[in-house]
Computed example of a mutant assay.
Amino acid sequence: MNPQLLVDCIDVNTHFGALHVLKNVSLTIRPGETVGLVGESGSGKTTLGRAILGIGPVSSGRILFNGTDIAGCPPGARAGEAAAIQAVFQDPYSSLNPSMTIEDILIEPVIARGLASRVDATAQVRKLLKQVALPTDAAQRYPREFSGGQRQRVAIARALALSPRLIVCDEPVSALDLSTQARVLDLFIEIQERTGVAYLFVSHDLSVVRHISHRVAVMRSGEIVEFGECDQVTARPAHDYTRRLLLAAPVADPIRQAERRAAFQALEKGN
């Protein structure tokens, strides 16, 4: 494996019965970078994220994490890699136990893996809350007492509790309003600059991916159809599917929006 790569997915295939969901997918993630994975619903992007996390099947191919093949291995069989790969999901409310305080939510993964005593883990809560810009008194409150954006900050803090090298972010801002989206995206960027964590950032929204990514992979029907530097893919795409995704994204200017709609329709007619 290239020592400059943290993750190297090589010809990954996933079948659900007769349905071929991932088709020879190859994708790399470097230490400390964000790779945006964008595509329409049903394109296979969440399936790939779950395969990297070890909570989704791999029929064939390899997923190298720091040189170790983890394809098809559940988190419990991954030794140190399990803690090194964490996740932030789309709906923070459903991913947080409503009966637990924020403090208990944050220290649970640390204690469960025997990485610290409860006293030592509790002492880290203040640091985690500070990392995600939440007040220290949040520790004794419950998820229902927070807004959607604040709950997502809690979910990010929980992912950071184990000092991961990679976080798989599966549509982490799609349930938030636009202003909250921007603040949470900026938080992801600040955390990355401070900790060096890498992200696989899964989204259907190319404008969101463009805001946060260093490189972008475009997935369609289980295949990566375009993969390259963010500026290249989002400004000068090589594939018609990527062009359609760009033109389908709404803009505030009604004149530009009309022009984009006309260009999108022309591209559709040409295929």
Rank of each mutant, 00 (worst) to 15 (best):
A87L: 03
Q90V: 01
R153M: 01
I70P: 02
C73D: 00
T136G: 00
D186K: 15
F146G: 10
H211T: 15
D91I: 03
L166N: 04
E171D: 03
Y199F: 11
L178V: 15
V154I: 14
L206D: 11
S147E: 10
A121Q: 02
I102M: 10
R78D: 10
V202C: 12
P75T: 05
P75W: 06
A161P: 03
R118S: 10
V88F: 09
E190D: 15
I105V: 08
N97S: 10
V184K: 04
V216C: 08
I111N: 02
G114D: 07
S95Y: 10
S94F: 03
G196K: 08
V125N: 03
S163L: 00
D120A: 13
I191Q: 09
A159Y: 03
R78P: 12
S94W: 09
E81A: 15
F188N: 04
E190R: 15
D91Q: 03
A71F: 07
Q90T: 02
A112C: 05
D186L: 14
G149C: 13
P92I: 09
M100I: 00
R215K: 10
V173D: 10
N97T: 01
V202K: 12
I105S: 00
E145P: 03
P92W: 14
T136V: 09
G80F: 01
K130V: 07
Y93C: 00
S207F: 08
A161Y: 11
C169P: 06
E171T: 03
V154C: 09
T180Q: 11
S163M: 14
G196T: 07
K127T: 12
F188C: 10
G72M: 05
V119L: 11
S179G: 08
L162Q: 01
S174H: 05
T195G: 12
H214F: 05
R158C: 06
V119K: 13
F201T: 12
A157T: 00
P164H: 07
A182G: 09
A159N: 11
E145L: 12
S163H: 13
S213N: 11
A121P: 02
L129P: 07
R141C: 00
A71S: 10
D170M: 04
L176S: 02
E108Y: 08
A161G: 02
Q152G: 07
I191N: 08
V110H: 06
Q131G: 01
A175G: 06
P75H: 00
S117Y: 04
A77I: 00
S179V: 10
Y93P: 00
R141D: 01
I212V: 15
P164W: 01
L166R: 08
R141T: 03
V209E: 13
L115E: 11
T101E: 04
Y142R: 11
V208Y: 13
F89R: 00
E171P: 13
P143R: 04
I212F: 14
F188G: 07
P75V: 06
Y142S: 01
V208T: 15
A138L: 05
L160D: 13
E81I: 15
P143M: 08
D104S: 11
K127G: 07
I107T: 15
V110Q: 01
I105A: 08
Q192I: 14
A157L: 09
Q150L: 09
S163V: 03
S99F: 11
V88T: 04
I102T: 08
L178E: 12
R153P: 06
E145D: 14
H214M: 06
L115V: 03
